[in-house]
Amino acid sequence: MSVLSLALPRRSANATIGGAIVISLVVLAVLGPQIAPYDPLALDLLSRMKGLSATHWLGTDEFGRDILSRLIHGARTSVWISFATVAFAMVFGLFFGVLAGFLRGWTDRIIMTFNDALLAFPGLLLALGIMAIAGASRDAIVVALGLAYTPAVVRVARASVMSIREREYIEASRVMGNSELITMLRHVLPNCIAPMTVLATTMFGWVILSESALSFLGLGVPPPAPTWGNMLATGRPFITQAPHLIILPGLCISVTLLGINMLGDAIRDWFDPKMQG
């Protein structure tokens, strides 16, 4: 009894709270310019580093810019970068992973050797290396983080294809005279959806985190465009005078990651119920 009463609420709590956080984030990102009370770049040097007030709900930063508006626009940037990066990694990762897992042989060996070498770079290091060549910009981040996360997708895609390709219905599709390509697209690919969904959700969180880390290091989206990471970086010198400059963007990142992690757990439990707690 106690097992049931505790397990069920947690499972639905994960899905509800996580889902709510992620949906509000996406809504915020899409509607950003419509709901932000101020222009995120508008300077007001007379009201610098003000605390929370009725005119500026979350206060102002070191240039008198409205923090709430900057956080909302920051959400927009983070969500855009994360979607683009996850899409990048998924497309390339699925392509090479499915190819390696389905064709096996030399194709598999060559793809996996390169893949393992890419995996030999810690994710953020690879991104740093690419940013060093390309220079800091929004598109460079997408390519840098996308390349850094592609190898993980390749591995998962290849593993799920290999577990599927020996099944009887795949053999049946071949016997029916379907080409390898049709078999792959119609029968193999749809079966990768479950593990890919779990991975994509987790990856969404990784990208939000890495993007804010890069921006915090000054190698992400360049100022004055607001992102949560570069707001933390530029607010850091004022940590004693105006702690809200660093508390608020960090809270946004943490709540977002918490939501994504909870949603990720809910999705994983849904596909693989034995791990739930």
Binding site: T240, I246, I247, I253, L257
Partner: peptide
């Protein structure tokens, strides 16, 4: 899960503060 969701650099700044 909560600890996993807090970025290291922000946690560091909070501890520093």
């Amino acid at each position: 899960t909560l600890l996993l969701s807090i970025p290291s650099f922000w946690l560091g700044l909070m501890i520093l503060l």
